Computed example of a mutant assay.
Amino acid sequence: MREAAQQLLSKGSPLQRSSGRAAQAMRDINPPPAATTQQTPHSARGEAPNPASHPAEFAQDILERMGIRIDLQANLDRAIDLGTLRQPSPTPPLPEGAQFIRGSYSNHAGTRHYKLYVPASYHGQAMPLLVMLHGCTQNPDDFAAGTQMNQLAEEMECLVVYPEQNAQANHSKCWNWFNAIDQQRGQGEPSIIAGIAQQIIEEYPVNERQVYVAGLSAGGAMAVIVGTLYPELFAAVGVHSGLPFASAQDLPSALTAMKRGVKSAAKAGNDAQPIIVFHGDSDTTVHPVNGEQVMKQRLHHHRNLRRPRVQSGEVPNGYSYTQTTHTRPDGSPVGEHWVVHGAGHAWSGGSALGTYTDAKGPDASREMLRFFRTVS
């Protein structure tokens, strides 16, 4: 909820955007009034706030018209106080022989930079490729440090590429999963992300049967979209704290989906592309019902699945969790749904070196890579 709310504040009205007026940083969205002036809120005067001069009130007004009763500014202030938007720690040193290479890809939809991790174990042999999509306010270095996916790439011998959203495309660096154009094959950000994967495949001897996409929050929602639109490219999808395919068409519907899920998830995906989903059941940013709906959306193709296997566990000195596994009659995996009890909006089992992580949960990075291996 916080991520999409920030989007409302940063984007402003269409008129404001077209005028070229720069969006203010989050800490400046509601500056205090001058000491000599007593302002009366627009809502108290029965007026709609001006989105250009009062972005915070404008966003609050939209939320209230949607029936969402939250104190937006208090929630944003609390997020800052909790440090969830802290700056990431410095990038840890690379193992000898490893590379973390910066590159870029361009097509008709635009240009995005990325960072590619090449493990020290790479000596020209074919390797799997994992595409990792960061969440809002993050970047490749932050996401790599928090998920520790580069360390696992050394252990499991795979390439990892981190596409980077830029502030020009989205002020908070969120992937634009809620835009209609970014839910279409050959269009928008999905075409760029798929293009980055294809570029890596052309430059390195990637095992093309072992190309995967995963992401967190807005990145998780975009991973669902990219996997759905390009099933011939991605063999499986990993989603952490994300949303179903086409769960929103604009910012108001995005806020609703994040808070309540969607009434009826679009039928999407195919029966050949397995999926693994992680979600904390105390997530107040993206409601955990979204994790259930991602699984339901993917499973609708299957009519003869085995009875789901449900297992419970607990991380030592950490959270308990429930893992539900769906398989075909022959035992091959279709999907896994991990509900982490007590966890919020953070990468489960992640490192404090990155933002939006919680080390008390099961290791989502390791479990995703293990799952991807089982479906190849």
Score class of each variant (00 low, 15 high):
Glu3Gln: 11
Leu9Gln: 02
Gly12Cys: 08
Leu15Pro: 00
Arg21Phe: 04
Ala25Asn: 10
Ala25Trp: 02
Arg27Gly: 01
Arg27His: 07
Pro33Lys: 10
Gln39Tyr: 01
Ala52Tyr: 02
Ala52Met: 14
Ala59Arg: 03
Gln60Ser: 13
Arg65Ala: 07
Asn75Gly: 03
Asn75Tyr: 01
Gln87Met: 14
Ser89Lys: 15
Ser104Trp: 03
Gly110Thr: 07
Tyr117Arg: 07
Ala120Tyr: 05
Tyr122Thr: 09
His123Glu: 12
Gly124Glu: 08
Leu129Asn: 05
Leu133Asp: 03
Gly135Ser: 12
Gly135Gln: 09
Asp142Asn: 15
Phe143Thr: 15
Ala144Gln: 06
Glu154Pro: 10
Pro163Ala: 12
Gln165Arg: 08
Ala167Trp: 02
Ala167Asp: 09
Ala167Lys: 13
His171Ser: 10
Cys174Met: 11
Cys174Trp: 02
Asp182Ser: 11
Asp182Gly: 10
Asp182Val: 07
Gln184Thr: 13
Ser191Gly: 07
Gly195Met: 13
Glu202Leu: 14
Val206Trp: 04
Gln210Asp: 02
Val213Asn: 06
Gly215Pro: 02
Leu216Tyr: 06
Ala221Trp: 04
Ala235Leu: 03
Ala236Phe: 08
Val239Ile: 15
Ser247Gln: 05
Ala248Leu: 09
Pro252Ile: 02
Pro252Tyr: 00
Ser253Ala: 05
Leu255Glu: 00
Val262Asp: 01
Val262Ala: 08
Lys267Trp: 02
Asp271Val: 07
Phe278Arg: 11
Pro288Gln: 09
Pro288Asn: 09
Val289Ala: 07
Glu292Val: 09
Val294Gln: 01
Arg298Trp: 12
His302Leu: 12
His302Ile: 01
His302Ser: 01
Asn304Met: 00
Val310Gln: 04
Val315Tyr: 00
Pro316Trp: 01
Asn317Thr: 03
Gln323Ser: 10
Asp330Phe: 10
Ser332Asp: 06
Val339Ala: 08
Val339Pro: 02
Ala346Glu: 02
Ser348Arg: 10
Leu353Asp: 13
Leu353Lys: 13
Lys360Val: 03
Leu369Ser: 11
